[in-house]
Amino acid sequence: MGMISKLIGIVFAAAGFILLFFGMNDTSGLSFVYSLLGLITMSFGFALLTAGKPKEEKPPPPTVTEIRCNDCDFKEIRDFKKGDYVLKPVEDACPKCQTGMTIEGVYIIREEPKETYNV
């Protein structure tokens, strides 16, 4: 749909331009009619060319819970569960060394903004 509408837009804009140019060089009484039609066709073409899809709202990034072992370097990242909070001791023991674990972080990773400013 996107590509086709852009192509139709180009065709309309070009046809409108020709019509306008023809109207401006015509000395007959219909010159305004041609010019007006040309302008309308051109604006319709440009509207089709510049129209984009409505902005789709991106879902927010998922919140994750980072759990770390109190003794070894074991780390687990899972989805956030209601009741999780930072520095909460976790009931499950570390699968590596069987000691306690703590929630070290509850966070999201936001997308980097696309715009960059060279200033």
């Binding site: 401006m24 305004f32 010019s35």
Partner: peptide, 14 residues
């Protein structure tokens, strides 16, 4: 080149 020049409808343009 003038739109609708020298014809009976040019007053409309003006």
């Amino acid at each position: 080149m003038q739109l609708g020049a020298d014809n009976e409808f040019s007053w409309i343009i003006n």
